[in-house]
């Protein structure tokens, strides 16, 4: 087997591929010439092994120890990204006119239902078309709401005209 060298620079700024501990060991054994294995750590920290010097058992042990720590860091980073992703507010199209034409509780309910439906539209039609459907359906919903309110008022007035006087 060819040479190996462990190097742990901080803030190296060099990207790399993440290998698990066993894959690293196997790769070092299988590749005899000029292999450079790069492991990506947290915040630009890069750990890489090169094949210029002999790979020693101590070297691999050290690599595996560092690898275990990196795994932990990677898990924390994934967890943080996951938490960020679930807290991130999805960018639903803006329908501010709901608050003008609807009662507050109706506007809230209509908006919430549109947002639920929007997720399905994104899955079925993609972002762009989902945005268009959202806007059209929001307008249709608001128009239906206003028409219902007007016709109900009109009905009340007609009742008053017929029986009230």
């Amino acid at each position: 087997m060819s040479a190996g060298k462990l190097n742990v620079p901080h803030k190296g700024g060099e990207g790399g591929v993440y290998f698990d501990a066993n894959a690293l060991k196997q790769l070092m054994e299988m590749t005899p010439h000029h292999t450079r294995i790069v492991m990506d750590g947290d915040d630009g920290q890069v750990i890489y092994a090169e094949d210029r010097d002999k790979v020693t058992a101590e070297g691999i042990d050290a690599a595996l120890r560092i690898q275990a720590e990196l795994k932990q860091v990677l898990l924390w980073r994934l967890e943080a990204e996951f938490l960020r992703s679930i807290n991130k507010k999805p960018a639903y199209p803006e329908v501010g006119y709901f608050d003008w034409v609807m009662r507050p509780d109706d506007a809230l309910d209509a908006r919430a239902n549109l947002e639920d439906a929007y997720d399905g539209w994104v899955a079925r039609h993609g972002d762009r078309r989902a945005n268009r459907i959202y806007r059209v359906q929001a307008f249709r919903l608001a128009a239906g709401y206003v028409l219902d309110r007007v016709s109900s008022r009109f009905g009340q007035i007609m009742k008053l005209v017929r029986f009230g006087f």
């Binding site: 239902n113 059209v136 359906q137 249709r140 128009a143 219902d148």
Partner: peptide
């Protein structure tokens, strides 16, 4: 089916 139509019809049917 259009979502706006379903939502409006649900409210009308409740009325």
């Amino acid at each position: 089916q259009a979502f706006g139509a379903v939502y409006t019809t649900l409210n009308r049917m409740a009325a």
